[in-house]
Design a binder for these strands. Structure first.
Length: 882
RNA sequence: GGGCGAUUAGCUCAGGGGGAGAGCGCUUGCCUUACAAGCAAGAUGUCGUAGGUUCAAAUCCUACAUCGCCCACCA
C-alpha cells in the first residue's frame, strides 16, 4: 500500500537531505586501515576556505564521488579525504576588505590581532564550502577533514622546509621577482598571467658622449629608462659594431652608461639596440648580471617612482611617469617615433594588476634536483596522466623549470621558520621559536616576517593529511593514493609540485594516476567567471533540479581533459532521465509481489526475461569498463541507454501483459526479473545519482542494508545469452516494422499486409513462433499481419498475389538493392585480399625465407579473411539471391 | 615563437579503419491503468579543406584553414 504513496514526479528536495544525514551520521563514509581490503584513496583538492562552490568544484567533486562510491561498493577500503586550503592572498584580501569597511587596515591591528581576525573569520565562514559539498552528495570521510594550516599540516610544512634547507635546496637571495603593487607581495612565475595587451613601442635617441650622434633604442616602458645602466647590442650586429665600448648619455638623467655587447639581443626587434634596466626587467637583470651592471631602482613597492628616478619624477605613479617622460623626451626632440605594439604583459593572477618586476630578497626552492625525479616518474609510468597528452605538458614545464620563489609578503600563512640575529647577522632555521642566537648569544633575534606560498603546503597535501612526518598506519596503507582528480588548470601549481615533494619525502609518487578534466564553460562556450557574471551557481541548480540531475549532467557527455559546456537543456535531460528511472521503479514497486516471493526458477523465464537479463550483463560490463578507464561519461551513457531504451521501452512493456493477464507463474517470473534488474540498475547508477537510487532502494528493499554499501554487480560476461539477444533483437525489429507500416501507411484494421523477413526460412518461422505474442501485444491492431510474416521476397510476391497489399522488407527498411551492391563490392575486395594472402602462403620461397612471425601474421590474416568472407556470404544469402 | 585541443544533424556533443550516432529542436499521431519531465512513427549530415597510407579512411599520416587553450625574458 505504501507503494501507492510514491508520487509520479520525483521530488529531490524531499529526500536528498534525509539521505545525506543518514549516510553521514551512520558513518557510511568512514574508512580506516583494513588489511582485508584493497586500499582506494583519493585526497580531495582542497578548495579555498574563502570559496563558494562553483561549477568547477561541482564537476571535480562529482567525478571523485563517482569513483569513490564505485570502489566502496566494490569492497575497497575507499577513503576520500576532504579538507580546505588557507589560500594566503585570497583569504587575507577578504579579511582586509572587511577591515577596510571599518576604516582600518591590517597595520592598524598589528600582525597578531589581524591573524586572530582571520582565524575567527575562518571559523565562521570556512565551513561554507564543505556544507555545499555535502549538498552535492560528496561521500567524504568528514571525520578526517583537514586544513592546510592545522597543527599537523603546519608541522609537515616546517619539517619539509627545514629538510630542504639542510639539503641546500632552499636558499635566500636577491633576485628580480614578480611584484604585485596591489597585493604588495611577490608572486611566483606561474602566478603571473601573460596577456596580450595593446601598447606602444617608443623609439628614443640616446646621445653618444662627446659625439654628434645618437643610438636609437626601442622600448615599451619609457619610464624605466630612468633606471637604465647600459645599452646593449648584439655583437654580430654590423650597425653597431663600432659603438660597443662607447658611452652614451642617458637623456633626462644625464648618467653616462656604456654600450655593451650581449649575444641575447635580438637584431630584428626595434632598432636592435636595447636599453638595459636591471632593476625592472627580468631579461635586463640577467644581462646586468653577466656584465656586472649596477641596478638603479626607480620604482617602489607601490608602483611609484623612487627618489632615484630624479626629483622631477619621484613620487609619480608609474603610468603617470610614463606620460611625463614621453612629454619630456618629445620636448627635447629625443623621441623619434611611437609605434603601436601588441605584446604580452604580466598581470597578477589574483587582482589583475600589471606586475612590476623588482629586485628583492626572497626565499627560493632550487628546482633542478627536485624536478628530475618527477620527470623520471612520469617517463617510467609510475605516475600516469589521463588523458595521456597531459604528460607532455607536465614534462615540458619541469624540464624548463626555474627556481620557485616561495616567500610571500603576507601575514596569513605558514610563517617562514627562520630567524635572523641582528647582532651577528646569523640566519637560523628552526622548527621551534628561537629566543637567542646560538652563535653570539644575543637575544635580538627576529623571525622572518614573510609566509610561504600557499602552494607550498598544498604540495604536501597527499602525505601531510595522512599523518606525515609521523610514520602512521594510514600512510603505510593509503600512500601512494590511487588517483588525483583535478582540472588541467593546476597541473603546474599543484600536480607537479605534489609529485616532486612526494618523491622527495615519501620516496614515492603521491598518486598513481592523475585524472584531468576540463573547465565548465557557459552555454556560449565562455569561461564562467565572476567578472562576466555568467557563472551558474551549483546550489541554485541543486535546488531547482536536484543534486542527482546536476551530477548526471556533469558526468555525461564529458570526456577526460575536455571542456564541458553547461546548458539547461542537458540538465533537463538528466532530470528527465532520473524521473524516468523513478517511474520505472514506481511501476516495479506497484507490481511487486505482496508476498515477497522474488525467486523465479530459470525455467519459468521466457525469452524477454532472458533477453533483458543478458542486456543487463552487458550494461554491467560497459559501466564497469567505463569506470575503470575513467570514461565516466561512457559508463553513464551506457546505463542511460539501458534504462531507457531497453528496460523501460521494451522489457517493462513486455512484462505488462504477463503481470495483468498472465498465469500466476508467468506473473511471478516477470516480477522476479523486474525486481532483479531494477535492483542491479540501482547499484550501477548509485555512484552517479546516489540520492534517488538510495531512495528507491529503500522502497524496494524495505528494512535491508542501504544501497551505498551494497556490492557492485559482478561483471559476468559468461552469463550473457547471445541466443536470446539475437532472437529478441529480431522480434523488436519486426515490431518496429509493423508499427511503421501502420503509422506510415495507415493500414486500417482488417486490411492485410505482409512483412518480408530477411533471414533463413526456418529461423524466421522460429522467431515468428516465439515472437507472435509480443507482436500481437505491442503492435496491437495489426494482428492480421502475423499470419503473413514470410521469409522471402518471392513469398511476399505470393502474398501480394493472394490479396495482401502492403509489405515491407525487414532489415530492408534499408534499400535492398543498394545493400546488395555494397555487399558484392565488399566480398570482392575481401576475396582479392584473401587471394593475395593465400598466394603468398602457397609460395615455398616465402615460407622458407620469411621470419616466423611474419608468416604467422599472414596465417592469422588468412583465417580472419576467410571468416569475414563467410559472414558476408551468409548475409548475401539472407538478402535473397536473385 | 613553441605546444595542445576542437572542427560530425538546425543547436550541444559522443563515437571511431569496413553498414553515419545521442540529447535537444523539428514533423505526424497519441493524456495507452510507471512516467506528457511521457509514448509511437519520422525527416535531417559530401563527419573543416587538400593530399597520402590501405583492398577499404569520418576514423591513421602530412600539410592547410578556422576557433579555443596553454607555455614563452623580442625590450
Amino acid at each position: 500500500m505504501t507503494e501507492k504513496t510514491l508520487p509520479p514526479v520525483y521530488a529531490p528536495e524531499q529526500v536528498e537531505e534525509k539521505w545525506y544525514r543518514f549516510w553521514e551520521e551512520g558513518g557510511f563514509f568512514r574508512t580506516g586501515v583494513d588489511p582485508e581490503k584493497k586500499p582506494f584513496c583519493i585526497v580531495m583538492p582542497p578548495p579555498n576556505v574563502t570559496g563558494e562552490l562553483h561549477m568547477g568544484h561541482a564537476l571535480d567533486n562529482t567525478l571523485q564521488d563517482v569513483l569513490i562510491r564505485w570502489r566502496r561498493m566494490q569492497g575497497h577500503a575507499a577513503l576520500w579525504l576532504p579538507g580546505t586550503d588557507h589560500a594566503g592572498i585570497a583569504t587575507q584580501a577578504r579579511v582586509e576588505a572587511m577591515l577596510a569597511k571599518e576604516g582600518m587596515s591590517r597595520y592598524d591591528l598589528g600582525r597578531e590581532k589581524f591573524l586572530e581576525r582571520v582565524w575567527s573569520w575562518k571559523e565562521r565562514y570556512g565551513n561554507r564550502i564543505t556544507l555545499q559539498l555535502r549538498r552535492l552528495g560528496a561521500s567524504c570521510d568528514w571525520d578526517r577533514e583537514r586544513f592546510t594550516m592545522d597543527a599537523g599540516c603546519s608541522e609537515a610544512v616546517k619539517e619539509v622546509f627545514l629538510r630542504l634547507y639542510d639539503r641546500g635546496l632552499i636558499y635566500r637571495g636577491s633576485y628580480i621577482v614578480n611584484w604585485c603593487p596591489q597585493c604588495r607581495t611577490v608572486i611566483s612565475d606561474i602566478e603571473v598571467e601573460h596577456k596580450d595587451t595593446a601598447g606602444n613601442l617608443y623609439y628614443i635617441k640616446y646621445p653618444v658622449k662627446n659625439q654628434d650622434r645618437f643610438v636609437t633604442i626601442a622600448t615599451t616602458r619609457p619610464e624605466t629608462m630612468l633606471g637604465d645602466t647600459a645599452v646593449a647590442v648584439n655583437p654580430a650586429d654590423e650597425r653597431y659594431g663600432e659603438l660597443i665600448g662607447q658611452v652614451v648619455v642617458l637623456p633626462l638623467v644625464g648618467r653616462e652608461i656604456p654600450v655593451i655587447a650581449d649575444a641575447h639581443v635580438e637584431t630584428e626587434f626595434g632598432t636592435g639596440a636595447l636599453k638595459v634596466t636591471p632593476a625592472h626587467d627580468p631579461y635586463d637583470f640577467e644581462i646586468g648580471g653577466r656584465h656586472n651592471l649596477p641596478a638603479v631602482r626607480v620604482i617602489d613597492q607601490d608602483g611609484r617612482m623612487t627618489p632615484e628616478a630624479g626629483a622631477r619624477y619621484a613620487g609619480l605613479d608609474r603610468w603617470e611617469c610614463r606620460k611625463q617622460v614621453v612629454r619630456d623626451l618629445e620636448a627635447q626632440g629625443l623621441l623619434v617615433k611611437v609605434e603601436d605594439l601588441s605584446h604580452a604583459v604580466g598581470h597578477c593572477y589574483r587582482c589583475d594588476t600589471v606586475i612590476e618586476p623588482l629586485i628583492s630578497k626572497q626565499w627560493f626552492v632550487r628546482m633542478k634536483p627536485l624536478a628530475e625525479p618527477a620527470i623520471n616518474a612520469a617517463r617510467e609510468g609510475r605516475v600516469r596522466f589521463v588523458p595521456e597528452r597531459f604528460t607532455k605538458i607536465y614534462m615540458h614545464w619541469l624540464e624548463n623549470i626555474r627556481d620557485w620563489c616561495i616567500s610571500r609578503q603576507l601575514w596569513w600563512g605558514h610563517r617562514i621558520p627562520v630567524w635572523y640575529c641582528s647582532d651577528c647577522g646569523e640566519t637560523i632555521a628552526s622548527g621551534r621559536e628561537v629566543r637567542e642566537c646560538p652563535k653570539c648569544g644575543s637575544a635580538r633575534v627576529e623571525q622572518d616576517p614573510d609566509v610561504l606560498d600557499t602552494w607550498f603546503s598544498s604540495a604536501l597535501w597527499p602525505f601531510s593529511t595522512l599523518g606525515w612526518p609521523g610514520e602512521t598506519a594510514d600512510l603505510k596503507f593509503f600512500y601512494p593514493t590511487s588517483v588525483l582528480v583535478t582540472g588541467r588548470d593546476i597541473i603546474f601549481f599543484w600536480v607537479a609540485r605534489m609529485i616532486f615533494m612526494g618523491l622527495a619525502f615519501m620516496e614515492d609518487v603521491p598518486f598513481r594516476e592523475v585524472f584531468i578534466h576540463g573547465l565548465v564553460l557557459d552555454a556560449l562556450g565562455r569561461k564562467m567567471s565572476k567578472s562576466l557574471g555568467n557563472g551558474v551557481d551549483p546550489i541554485d541548480v541543486i535546488e531547482s533540479h536536484g543534486a542527482d540531475s546536476l551530477r548526471f549532467m556533469l558526468v555525461t557527455g564529458n570526456t577526460p581533459g575536455n571542456d564541458l559546456r553547461f546548458n539547461f537543456e542537458k540538465l533537463e535531460g538528466a532530470r528527465n532521465f532520473i524521473n524516468k528511472l523513478w517511474n520505472a521503479s514506481r511501476f516495479v514497486l506497484m507490481n511487486l509481489d505482496p508476498e515477497g516471493s522474488r525467486a523465479a526458477a530459470p525455467a519459468d523465464r521466457e525469452l524477454s526475461d532472458r533477453w533483458i537479463l543478458s542486456r543487463y550483463r552487458e550494461a554491467v560490463e560497459k559501466a564497469t569498463a567505463g569506470l575503470g578507464a575513467y570514461e565516466l561519461g561512457e559508463a553513464a551513457r551506457a546505463l542511460y541507454e539501458f534504462v531507457w531504451d531497453e528496460f523501460c521501452d521494451w522489457y517493462v512493456e513486455l512484462a505488462k501483459p504477463r503481470l495483468y493477464r498472465g498465469t500466476p507463474g508467468e506473473a511471478a517470473a516477470a516480477r522476479a526479473v523486474l525486481h532483479e534488474v531494477l535492483g542491479g540498475l540501482l547499484r550501477l547508477l548509485h555512484p552517479f545519482i546516489p540520492f534517488v537510487t538510495e531512495e528507491i532502494w529503500s522502497h524496494l528493499n524495505k528494512g535491508g542494508a542501504p544501497l551505498i554499501h551494497q556490492p557492485w554487480p559482478e561483471d559476468t560476461p559468461g552469463l550473457k545469452d547471445p541466443e536470446a539477444e539475437e532472437e529478441m533483437g529480431l522480434i523488436i525489429e519486426i515490431i518496429r516494422a509493423v508499427r511503421h507500416i501502420r503509422a506510415q501507411m495507415s493500414v486500417p484494421p482488417g486490411r492485410r499486409a505482409a512483412l518480408v523477413l530477411v533471414a533463413p526460412e526456418e529461423r524466421v518461422r522460429r522467431i515468428i513462433e516465439k515472437g507472435k505474442g509480443y507482436i500481437e501485444e505491442l503492435a496491437a491492431g495489426s494482428v492480421t499481419l502475423a499470419a503473413e510474416l514470410t521469409a522471402k521476397p518471392a513469398q511476399a510476391a505470393h502474398a501480394v498475389a493472394a490479396g495482401v497489399e502492403i509489405f515491407v522488407p525487414l532489415g530492408g527498411l534499408v534499400d535492398m538493392e543498394k545493400e546488395r551492391v555494397r555487399l558484392a563490392k565488399e566480398i570482392d575486395t575481401v576475396e582479392k585480399e584473401l587471394a593475395r594472402v593465400e598466394g603468398k602462403l602457397g609460395n615455398p620461397g616465402f615460407l622458407s625465407k620469411a621470419p616466423a612471425d611474419v608468416v604467422a601474421k599472414e596465417r592469422d590474416k588468412q583465417v580472419e579473411l576467410s571468416a569475414k568472407r563467410e559472414a558476408l556470404q551468409n548475409r548475401r544469402r539472407m538478402l535473397g539471391e536473385q
